[in-house]
């Protein structure tokens, strides 16, 4: 167990966590501002990945693929907000769960209809292919490093948008008192559509970026969606800061757990049994983390006190 391996796994965990943040940020923003639980967020992640894969295959340009992912997911988000989601803001959570569950069925089968059941592949752009040498002799894939950087830049941009811009002021005001900001002349419907499309674009971006290291296929969004739920439950629903901390915690726990728990058990168990126990436990590690946070703080690390 060398330090280099540990460093690599920490970087993998960071990369996974920061991509999870892109998903979780949209979810938590949509819940914070509109009070809506959106199960179809994973479908927007999938839409982004498929748009990127299709456009990158047609044009040969990864950058154009990313643009397509952002535009496609934002457009799909705006469309479902205008047609469906808008009718759900005043409903209870049960109706929101069901309607967005129905949207998942429609998106998944619709994508299967258009693209078929076989996975698509999105290649890492040549400029970012191959390993890069980091200090202390660590070799790390350049693309994964780029994901961390892109994710951090987007996170910084998001914090800036919320904290420093006029639209950010409106979003924060919308979280607190929707009647008051409507009375002050803000077009609340347009604001909601914007927030939803923004969340969708972030999910689509994550889907496209991750799509280059995994296969792009129907149903890729839901496992990520559930991890994003775990993330915002840990971080506290509605808090972007909580989403960032939660995403990094989940990413690191998941990645480090699957590598190091079997090793840990090998110290005092037979190798086969240790691998088995370690694998089982590491698949449950983030949920155990979630349970512990809930016992300690039922509304998450940065959630408002209920």
């Amino acid at each position: 167990m060398s330090l280099i391996l540990i460093a690599e796994q920490v970087l993998n965990g960071l990369q996974f966590g920061i991509m999870l943040f892109l998903m979780a940020a949209g979810l938590t923003l949509i819940f914070g501002v509109m009070g809506l639980i959106n199960l179809a967020h994973g479908s927007l992640y999938m839409v982004g990945a498929f748009c990127a894969a299709a456009v990158a295959a047609a044009t040969g340009s990864f950058a154009l693929g990313l643009v397509a992912a952002l535009a496609g997911a934002a457009a799909a988000g705006a469309l479902i907000e205008l047609v469906v989601i808008r009718r759900l803001y005043d409903r209870d959570h049960l109706d929101q769960v069901l309607a967005t569950f129905a949207l998942i069925l429609i998106f998944s089968e619709g994508t299967r209809w258009v693209f078929g059941s076989f996975p698509l592949y999105l290649d890492v752009p040549p400029a970012l292919a191959g390993p890069v040498a980091l200090p202390f002799g660590i070799q790390y894939p350049l693309y994964r490093l780029a994901l961390i950087v892109i994710g951090l830049v987007v996170a910084a941009g998001l914090f800036w948008l919320i904290a420093r811009t006029r639209i950010g002021v409106q979003i924060r005001a919308g979280e607190n008192d929707r009647e008051m900001i409507a009375a002050l002349g803000v077009d609340i419907d347009r604001l909601y559509t914007f927030v939803f499309a923004l969340g969708a674009a972030l999910a689509g971006l994550a889907g496209a970026l991750v799509g280059a290291i995994q296969s792009v296929q129907v149903g890729m969004g839901e496992p990520v969606l559930i991890l994003a739920f775990v993330t915002i439950v840990i971080g506290g629903i509605g808090s972007i800061k909580g989403a960032l901390i939660g995403a990094l915690l989940v990413g690191l726990t998941e990645t480090l757990g699957s590598v190091f728990l079997p090793e840990l058990f090998k110290l005092f168990m037979a190798p086969a049994a240790a691998t088995q126990t370690g694998a089982s436990l590491s698949s449950m590690a983030i949920y155990i983390l979630m349970a512990m946070v809930l016992i300690w703080r039922p509304t998450g690390l940065f959630g408002a006190r209920a």
């Binding site: 819940f31 639980i37 959570h93 769960v97 496992p223 559930i226 739920f229 775990v230 915002i232 439950v233 629903i237 698949s283 449950m284 949920y287 979630m290 809930l294 016992i295 039922p298 509304t299 998450g300 209920a306």
Partner: peptide, 18 residues
């Protein structure tokens, strides 16, 4: 059940996945 509303939905979903 320590939580309610949308937390409860997400947590039961997460335990299911576990």
């Amino acid at each position: 059940l320590r939580t309610s509303g949308v937390y409860f939905i997400m947590i039961t979903l997460a335990f299911g996945q576990m």
